[in-house]
Design a protein around this nucleic acid. Structure first.
Lengths: 138, 138
DNA sequence: ACCCTAATGTAGCCCATGCTACATTCGATG
DNA sequence: CATCGAATGTAGCATGGGCTACATTAGGGT
């Protein structure tokens, strides 16, 4: 039943995407912070995401459980190789999605805002089509 | 603080969209079933969404709490005026999103699948841009 | 060297969204 | 018209992802 394009299957994919989107957001942000300031602190992560710090810390716990990050008490958060990999992919997808929205004529601010949610639902096939679209336009 | 395009604010919008997306899915589906078969039964809803029936029934309870639907024990589910309104808007948005994806070159099946998740994150401004895009192309 | 602040961590709560297992009710059919 | 299967409803559990309130630790400034 790998290829079963029923409506139920589509909703299933959407649910899966929703559940991974949080982790992707965190990983992407941690990579950004690490690149910008050398380290990713829980408080900064929380501030950037607009959540309280316990929420961020709990999420970081889930990242660790998922093998995407490591952290020692009272130290910052660091991505594992798997985390870095995911961050790279997520970041590239994010950029491409926003670029396509802008190319279509979506105002920049809307593209940035909506892209934050949309990116997590873009499959590989759609991503390839996006890349093709950007390549082929004037 | 209505106009504050910070990253935190964008994540906030994405979270809000995630929390409403479930209700939108249900309302849209109920409208479809009602149009197709004359009534929306909990079991059919569950089957179409790919969840178990208690899950669907609980969600229907939330729909009722939100004033989007009504139902009496052992009868089908019916949308309120507000529910119909939301269903109409959601359905139109869904179509437009899928159409734009296809126009960009996304394979139909991917467009249908990804659209299911993407639609909930498309703002009014982006929607308008999408409509403009579809109008202006060859 | 101490202490104060800010960062980090913990505990405990809430709600949404899924599930399984069990109970009830409807309605079709023998 | 009685019964049995399917639909509906209920109970109870888990997890994710928020929160507030409180505890602990790190580290810079006097």
């Amino acid at each position: 039943m790998p290829e079963e394009p029923t409506q139920a299957h589509r909703f299933d994919l959407a649910r899966k995407a929703r559940s991974t989107s949080l982790l992707e957001d965190y990983v992407e942000l941690i990579a950004d912070l690490a690149a910008a300031t050398g380290e990713a602190r829980a408080t900064d992560i929380a501030k950037r995401l607009g959540v309280t710090h316990p929420t961020a810390i709990k999420a970081i716990g889930r990242l660790k459980a998922a093998g995407l990050a490591t952290s020692r008490p009272y130290r910052g958060v660091f991505l594992t190789d798997a985390g870095l990999e995911l961050a790279k992919k997520t970041k590239a997808r994010h950029r491409l999605v926003v670029d396509v929205l802008i190319a279509i004529g979506v105002p920049t601010e809307s593209a940035e805002a909506d892209g934050e949610g949309i990116e997590h639902h873009v499959s590989e096939a759609t991503l390839r089509a996006f890349a093709r679209f950007m390549r082929n336009r004037a």
